[in-house]
Nucleic acid binder design. Structure first.
Lengths: 218, 218
DNA sequence: CGTTATCTTGACCGTCGTCAAACAGGGTGG
DNA sequence: CCACCCTGTTTGACGACGGTCAAGATAACG
């Protein structure tokens, strides 16, 4: 297990790679992405500190998507074979891997719904809610808001919109008093209303405790 | 392990359930779905014979989506605890579960791209291609075409379109000589062209052998 | 202090949604 | 065997959400 510091924009995995390591995000943010034949990009999920980046590559031979750093980050590499052997020797670790992978799949299902069946306003509100809850669960966000580690263009690629429209929606959410923001810092003015417009329920995140996000109490 | 025969439309799992069984689809077709707060439905994946339906429910406590039968089907139930114990005792089974779950996640990623970044024509062509390849890999589709086990309305919910638009696109694909169809039977007239308009590559299915679908040779 | 990435705004346009009606097909029962 | 219905498919007219293009404003950064 080896630690590496990498700059924003570095690739951790590229689509088509035959990877040798399983990579854990110790600090910083990353995102998974695919690019279509016509050149448009889709962001598939955002990795936050503590996430395992590629269990995929531990058991599948060729990577079906790329992972790129959103910010400067430190990652831990674990040799593929070592982890494979570990899973066979310690079944409890295998169960942990299954657990983590299933949650990732659940989040992907919610993303399909998000880009497929919600309008632009709900979509953006939804990713903001998801971020907030996931970050809070790891103790990385305060109750009031958080620093969004992505540009509006990246937010557009995560929500299947255009940067222009993302900008319009963000301004509208602000104008309606749901959030406030200066540059990338998002503050939740009305968390309840934001959840409502987002059609957000934290169930799909499968976090321990079914209670509402603490922010709701404010 | 118990076999059950169920009618089309039966629910195997409902969102919010606390399931007791892990279910395998022996014969027939099913689909995963979620419904938004405004009532629109998104189909998340289609299960074909041989698919494990809910590894989710084996390790996560509450179901985040529903699974409903597309056709009459027979399913095999395995008690949740039995399978959990089996994974701990036979790590190789755990690895198989991980493998299957990772492939499912890969397909979900492709679906995010499909509904997010492709136009209606490519989207529909893409699900047709995916079906064909997955069915063929299990020996369930001939080289010429297959019986699509879903209505145009369900196809619309799978592609995040409206039934009306699905109909228009299908007719257009037919008019352009890519497919032919009578009722739900789809025949591939020009498989290569269909793949091209679909922006389809089978890599994300992680099937053994990187060679093209046999249909391509015809 | 210039250079570049990012954000912001406006005018216009197109893909796809909406609404509504007509048209199969395929069971069912009289 | 035929009327009947119900689900699914087909078609058209119209509208809207979000895309496109282009320009200007505002940071970040060397």
């Amino acid at each position: 297990m080896r630690l590496r510091r990498l700059d924003a924009g570095s690739y951790i995995v590229r689509e088509g790679d035959v990877p040798k390591n399983c990579c854990i995000l110790v600090e910083g943010f990353a995102y998974r992405q695919k690019v279509t034949g016509t050149g448009s990009r889709q962001i598939l999920s955002v990795c936050i500190p503590g996430d395992a980046i590629d269990f995929q590559n531990m058991f599948l031979d060729i990577s079906d998507h790329s992972v790129q750093l959103l910010t400067r980050a430190t990652v831990a590499d674990i040799p593929r074979e070592a982890l494979q052997a570990l899973v066979l020797k310690q079944p409890a670790i295998g169960v942990a891997v299954i657990h983590s992978t299933l949650i990732e799949a659940s989040i992907l299902r919610e993303w399909v719904v998000n880009v497929g069946r919600r309008d632009a306003r709900s979509r953006i509100a939804h990713v903001l809610c998801e971020f907030a809850v996931r970050l809070e669960a790891r103790g990385l966000a305060s109750k009031e808001g958080f620093e969004l580690p992505m540009t509006q263009e990246q937010l557009a690629d995560a929500t299947s919109l255009t940067p222009v429209h993302v900008n319009r929606v963000l301004k509208s959410l602000q104008a309606d008093g749901l959030i406030s923001r200066q540059r990338r810092n998002i503050q939740f003015i009305d968390w309840r209303a934001l959840q409502d417009t987002a059609d957000f329920s934290r169930r799909y995140l499968h976090l321990p405790g079914e209670d509402e996000l603490a922010v709701a109490a404010t």
